[in-house]
Design a binder for these strands. Structure first.
Lengths: 235, 235
DNA sequence: TAGTGGTCTAGACCACTAT
DNA sequence: TAGTGGTCTAGACCACTAT
């Protein structure tokens, strides 16, 4: 299995420090030549490295060494920005759109609503050191947040707005983690090639009165995240 | 992008119920012919379906439709067997080996031990409906479990043995979820091809007195698992 | 504009599986 | 034993990126 050997050779170069985070690998044709193989086999090796979270691909730009993943605790209220700063990372968030829509099937199910209910939908992309790492869609029940869309959603975090303008805080969260692949708009926003493997985190959030408030669907570049948490077990 | 269209065509067949869980897809050469393409392109489409968790591959045996994933809550003490039964699945566990070893680097770190400490290592494979879905390695601090290796580890769950023979229960767990790929022994035990994408769950377990007891490293077929939990948020 | 990655073709050989 | 999946070769074209 040639491609495993090529993978190991590249891993060694990464671990020896010859290749550092964010650095671009040489062109596929050059790598293939240097390992005396074809592009197809070389790409097998690169896909393996991608699956292991050691490198990532930017669509049509090439392959890059992955930095350390962000440690992400879905049971903390800590928002992305504060979480990143606490880990000495440089976060940024782009607001893509915020609008009222009729529920999609997926959103209706997550929010426990009838089909075609009115909800808010907010799409954002979050960056670490200017690399897009997660595409987040929030579906929000509008009852408790009248006028939300008129506020400056680009300038403040949703959790801050909830708390400061509406007196709502998250008190309970139901979350689900699965693997999937990036396609279409989501792939594009993350500068990913269609089909790039990814991690999906779905969260359903409840307020201090146990009422369902909103949900968010997060598509993460899987090399950029490590989900970590601590739980006290009940007996 | 031909391979996305092929993928969509197969998804449609799955969703229409023409293909049912555990069923084998036709041979790659036949599928390629029926979509009027080559094996390379067809395999692009199959890899996409694999990344989405809709199909899985058994090494040299072919591609199969994925059943529903097992819902897995890492914050519950519930062991694999009871979890599976509660979801109307048919679990089985194979004990591969149980022995005393000197810590590996990874185990030493997780168990907060010096290099070359004595620990127990238990390797098991767990099945659902006779399909191997997870490879589990337990690293166990031996102090609290004298004579553990002499017990019938194949016949009872570790948590049951801990509780019944040693009066030890899990009270706190630290866990971490990342993606990786299957290689070597682990791949083989799961009937997977080298490089198959997978989900890794690491758990570090503490007893009722807050002492570190053991850790386990789980390599899951990623289509076989959906990690789900509920958390009360502290403020 | 030169070079690159994304995608695809059309094969080949071999060890293994299914029967 | 027939057929299959795993792996690999040696190309090709094109739209896009980097400069």
């Amino acid at each position: 299995m040639q491609y495993v050997k090529i993978k190991d050779a590249i891993v060694e170069q990464i671990e020896s420090g010859m290749l550092s985070p964010r650095q671009k690998l040489p062109a596929e044709r050059k790598l293939a030549e240097s390992f005396d193989t074809t592009r197809v086999t070389l790409r097998e090796a690169l896909s393996l490295l991608e699956a292991e979270g050691r490198i990532y691909r930017e669509d049509r730009r090439g392959w890059f060494i992955s930095p350390e993943p962000l440690r992400y605790d879905p049971t903390q209220t800590l928002n992305f920005t504060n979480m990143a700063i606490a880990q000495n990372r440089q976060p940024r968030t782009d607001l893509l759109s915020a609008k009222g829509i009729l529920t999609t099937k997926q959103a209706a199910q997550l929010l426990e609503l009838q089909a075609f209910s009115d909800i808010y939908r907010v799409d954002r992309v979050r960056y670490l050191e200017e690399r897009p790492v997660v595409f987040v869609t929030n579906f929000i029940r509008p009852e408790k947040f009248a006028g939300l869309l008129d506020l400056d959603l680009a300038g403040a975090s949703l959790t801050d707005i909830y708390r400061e303008k509406y007196g709502v805080v998250y008190a309970k969260v139901k979350y689900r983690v699965t693997t999937t692949s990036l396609l279409g708009d989501v792939a594009q926003a993350l500068r990913a090639t269609s089909g790039t493997p990814a991690m999906m985190v779905e969260r359903i959030n409840y307020n201090q009165h146990g009422e369902l408030i909103d949900c968010d669907i997060e598509y993460w570049r899987h090399d950029a995240i490590s989900i970590e948490s601590i739980a006290q077990l009940e007996r």
